[in-house]
Each structure stands twice: as structure tokens, then as C-alpha cells.
Design a protein around this nucleic acid. Structure first.
Lengths: 332, 332
DNA sequence: GATGTTTGCGAAATTGTTTGCAAAAGGATA
DNA sequence: TATCCTTTTGCAAACAATTTCGCAAACATC
């Protein structure tokens, strides 16, 4: 194994001091042009590359962001991560990805990894069971900004980037009202999750206040299979429901499998509308599913923008919300 | 901002030398039990955490793997990454994720990031246009092992972890023959990609050698929309084809959208079989789609195992192949 | 000729951890 | 008391890059 070139090697070869070489490579005005040229030539010949570890040690910072998510394999998070990575690389940062597997213990361990690596900042979507957010706030104390996204803590004063849960559910409800539907099956996610609560609350209150004639059956599904069963149960009787609202991509997949099993015609026999991360799942069916978009990719871009703002001194805490938009597909 | 505790701080507080503190924390036999206890107590009190950058500089290694993929947002890669992350964390390694966006230039830049970070190893799936793999081999020279996975270079002597492309396509073909189908539309991916070539070659040669009565229409689709159009084209005429074979998840989504549009009954009017990454997409339809599994998650586990073997001295180069298996879903 | 300014560069400190070697301290034995 | 261990600890170098301080010498100004 050939060892990598260092400033020292270059300086010895040229009979210069290390500092001179360093400055020459940075085009520092202190150094004469001839010296600069000599140094640069030799550096590229020796394939010199600065040692990140040495720089990190010296500056006590690294050009790296930590990203902690419950799971990577989820259409929302991976599009978030992909968008984040693109912008981060453009800005000269790399991403360390850590999964908590929805386990607060592992989450804590991941925070430790971020601290030890002195990352420049952390993006985190907390687990469903994270109670104590003090460990997160502690990072701020050692000058590592923390941006919460998607699943954010309830009360504390911290930086949050959220989807417009209320707005998205409201949009979906209004669309259903506009289409003059009368009997809706609304399927929400796990009853404990705050995102389910928010969306349910918004959805139902819109229906209640804006439409007197509509009936809503509201149910919860923990996964696609639950949604499949619920759809079968209510959809089996002809004409019992005329619309299904799904709160997420995952629920939508269960609903649509049941719709196919029941051989229901969409949108004539039954209308479908969902809240989705992007057009990936909605475009897998015919007709394409109408949905309210809450984009993971857009959230990623918003998150890194907030991070850069924060690092450049705009340190005030705030909660940002990503607007959503309706994409009509023909299923309602 | 409170500064983080260092060995120096601890040593000064206790009137010991830095080296004594260092060794005490590592439970080195040289240090007396009382000293060890004193040190450990203070260390935990001061919330001491070793500085990764200093360790990295000292050892010229980091407990980090680099992962370079064309895109993250892809059902194959993100399940690969998720599996890799789980095992890596268990072994004390973090993951730096880099997307090449299928651009060889960015890929090169990402390699540079890996070198500069002196990662412990690199997992890479090359872009469709990567011609020159010398830069990858160069990493090996500076003692950074490189494991190619999924999209691997053709010829060179390097570590490769591949899906069993030939086997998977063969399995699918044999299944179709077993079901005594007569007229098959086979849709493969982009014509230039080696994975398409391999699967096509295997599929066709099995059909040719094992079945005299079967007719195959072979087509290429660059994306889901292409597959949608092809399926519409050939599926419109009743009874013209009795089976569709899809080479990938993405193609399958296009095929199924068309099937729904044509209101074809699966499997009675038309049979479907696909090669898929996991059961995610196949389970979105009813009946569930029969598929040959080429699991990204399993490939991730295999890749990290190979990496660890390589790092512990089993340095011989080899090509490993992940076996595939048939999952019957009811669509054929 | 004295003083100030600029140019070009080097020495040394800094960052936190590890480690080989030296050495001190203490006890036991001759 | 001298010698020899053993146990325990400290010194100093090494890792690579950056940065501060400041030295000289050249040059300009009065």
C-alpha cells in the first residue's frame, strides 16, 4: 500500500515549510506566484488530497450531516433523504444515515454517533415512542443544530419542518364535498400517532361544518392489510359507501387491493382519494388515484434550507410547514 | 456553548497524565483498580465521549462505510441500504450515503469524498455509463476495500455481489412453461443495460430449448409508461397473448395499470409473472402477483458479510451471487 | 540615515487520542 | 543496605492540517 501524500511530504520535497505549502495550495496572497506554482504542480503530481480527519480535528466540525429516521425503507423517508443528499452534496456536505427502527434506545445510540462524529447538524424524525427530547436539545448546547422533520415533538421550542397535515386533510375533505359524495369511508393510520389524530380531526371537522348531508365512517388501519380488510368489509355491500378516503400511501395500497378483489368500478361505483407522498403509488392504478400531495422530496429541500439558514446565524426557532396540493387523477 | 470533555480535562482534574486516563478508560491491565474507578467516575460525570476525529486521524481509518448508488429513491436500493445500515450499526459502523444520479462525473466526486474521509470500505453500484473503473481500483491501493453490487463492472478482477439474473429469469420462464402458456409478452428494461441483456438471454434460451409450442414477443421498456403502452398495445386484442412476463418492479407497475385499464381478468384471461425486489409491489394488486424474488435486503446482508470477511484478511477476490426464489401469488 | 510598510516565509502551537518506552514507587529478598 | 522485581504511571512522539505570531529582507518615505 502506497501511503497518501501529505503537506509534510510536499514541503520536504520542495524544501519549504508546511505552512508555506498549505497557504500556496489555498492561493493565499502571502505566497509568491512562483512558489505557488511549484507547490501546486507537485501536489497534483503526488495526488495530494487534504486529510479530512485532520481538518475535522482541528476545526472540531465535520462537513457531514446526520440523518436519523425510524426507517429508510419507506416511500416518504427515502425521497426525503434523496432530496437532502442532492442539496447537501452541492453544498459540500455528506450524509450519515441512521435508522432507529422506531426504537428510542437505538435512537439515543444514533444521537451519540452524531455527537461523536461532531456532525455539522442533525435532521431527525423521532420514533413513535420518543418521550424525552432532552438528549436532542443537548446537541444544540454543543453547537450542533437539530432540525426535526415530519414526526416532531409536540410542545418544545425547537426547529420543526412539518407537512401541512391539517391543510392536506382539509383539502381532501373539501374535494369530496365538492364532488357531492354522500357516504364516505375514511381510513386513518395508527390511532396513537399524532399525524393520524391531526388528519382525522381536520377531516371530520371540515365535513361537519361544511356538509350536512354527508355521512362519514371513520376507521383506523395499522397497515395495508388492515386497510384491505376494512375496505372489503364496507365495500362488499353494493352502494353502502360511495367514497373512500385514505390517509397515506400505505393505506391506499391496501384499499386498492380490496377494490380489485371486489371488482368495483372506479370512480363510477366508488370514488377514491388519498393523501400521498408523491405520484408513485397513485400512478400504479387505472384510473390514476386523485391525491393530495405531501412531498418528501420538497420537505427535504425545505429542511436543508432551514439548516443552512440556522447555521449562518438566523438561529431563531420556528416551525415551518410545507404546503400541499391536490393532484386530480380520475378516481373521484 | 459548553465545550466537550476531553482526556486532557479529566487528567488535569485528577492530576494524572493523559495516557493514564486513556488506558484507565480502556480497562488496560497496567492501571490500578482505584485509579480506573476514579477515572471512570469522573468521565461519566463529565459525560466524556471520545473524539472520533482524533481517533480517525490517529488510526487513519474511520468506522464508516461509503455507499454509492445511482439513486436512493428506488425500491431496490433503499431496501439494500436499509439492510446494510442495520448490520453496519450492529458492527459499530456508520454509513455515508452518496448518490451519483447516474452521472459518472458525480460518481468520481463521490469516490473522492470516500477517499478523503478514509472510509473503512466502499459499496458501489456503478452508473450505466461508468467506463473506467481504475479510480475504484485505486481505492484498494490505499487499503480501502471496494465491493461492487448489483450493477457491477463487466470484466475486471474485483469483488462483486450480484443478483442471480440468469437464474431468476430462468425460474420465471420455467414457471410459465409449467403452466403451459402459449403466447407470452416479455417486457425487459432498457436495451443497453447488462441486466436486461442477461435476463433476456436467459429467458429466451430456456423457452427455446424447453418448449416448442410457445411463442414469445419480446419488448423493451425504459420506464413504467413504456410498459403501460406495450401492454395496452398487445393486450387489447382478446386472446392475442395469454401471459405477460415483466423483468422488474417498475415495469410491473406499468403492466398492471394497463391491465386494469383493459379490465382483464387475472389470471383467467391473462397471466402475470414478474421479477421483483420484494413482495411490496406484488402485494398491491389482487390477485397478488407471482414473482421471482431478487431481494435487495438480502443482497445488503450478503454485501456486508463479504466486506467483513475481506477486512479480516480473506482478501481473495470473488463474485458472489444471491439465489432467487419463486413466490406464488395467484396471478399465473 | 532613520523609520515605516510590505512581501515571503517559517516556527511553533493547536486539536484529542494512542502507544512504546522510560521511570518511579513500592515491596520483597539476599 | 543493596539488589531485583513488579506494579503503576508519565513522557513524548505521532497522526495531518491549520493558524497565529513574528522574523527578516526589500522597498518606500521623509
Amino acid at each position: 500500500m502506497r501511503t497518501k501524500a501529505t503537506l509534510k511530504h510536499i514541503s520536504q520535497s520542495l524544501n519549504l515549510s508546511i505552512s508555506t505549502v498549505s497557504r500556496a495550495l489555498k492561493n493565499h496572497p502571502d505566497i509568491s506566484d512562483q512558489t505557488k506554482q511549484k507547490v501546486m504542480e507537485l501536489a497534483s503530481l503526488m495526488e495530494y488530497e487534504p486529510n479530512t480527519h485532520a481538518i475535522n480535528l482541528r476545526t472540531n466540525k465535520s462537513k457531514t450531516f446526520g440523518v436519523i429516521v425510524p426507517v429508510i425503507s419507506n416511500y416518504f423517508y427515502h425521497s426525503f433523504i434523496a432530496a437532502l443528499e442532492e442539496d447537501a452534496r452541492r453544498l459540500g456536505y455528506a450524509l450519515i444515515i441512521l435508522q432507529s427502527s422506531d426504537d428510542p434506545q437505538i435512537e439515543l445510540e444514533n444521537l451519540r454517533i452524531c455527537r461523536m462524529n461532531r456532525v455539522a447538524g442533525v435532521f431527525v424524525s423521532i420514533t413513535a415512542n420518543t418521550k424525552d427530547i432532552k438528549p436532542f436539545l443537548k446537541l444544540d448546547e454543543v453547537d450542533i443544530p437539530v432540525i426535526f422533520f415530519d414526526k416532531v415533538p409536540d410542545f418544545e421550542a425547537c426547529n420543526k419542518i412539518c407537512l401541512a397535515d391539517t391543510e392536506a386533510a382539509t383539502m381532501a375533505a373539501l374535494t369530496i364535498i365538492r364532488k357531492q359524495k354522500k357516504k364516505v369511508l375514511a381510513i386513518f393510520g395508527n390511532e396513537e400517532m399524532s399525524i393520524s389524530k391531526k388528519r382525522k380531526q381536520a377531516f371530520l371537522s371540515v365535513i361537519e361544518s361544511q356538509s350536512s348531508s354527508m355521512e362519514v365512517i371513520s376507521e383506523h388501519a395499522d397497515n395495508a392489510d388492515d386497510a384491505f380488510m376494512l375496505t372489503l368489509k364496507y365495500g362488499a355491500k353494493t352502494g353502502f359507501i360511495d367514497t373512500i378516503f385514505s390517509m397515506s400511501d400505505e393505506i391506499l395500497t391496501g384499499v386498492m387491493r380490496a377494490i380489485q378483489k371486489l371488482k368495483k368500478n372506479v370512480p363510477n361505483e366508488i370514488g377514491i382519494i388519498s393523501i400521498c407522498n408523491n405520484n408513485f403509488i397513485p400512478r400504479m392504478y387505472d384510473p390514476e388515484i386523485s391525491f393530495v400531495e405531501t412531498s418528501g422530496a420538497d420537505l427535504g429541500k425545505l429542511a436543508i434550507k432551514r439548516m443552512m439558514d440556522h447555521m449562518s446565524g438566523k438561529t431563531f426557532v420556528q416551525e415551518l410547514t410545507l404546503p400541499s396540493r391536490l393532484v386530480e387523477g380520475g378516481s373521484l
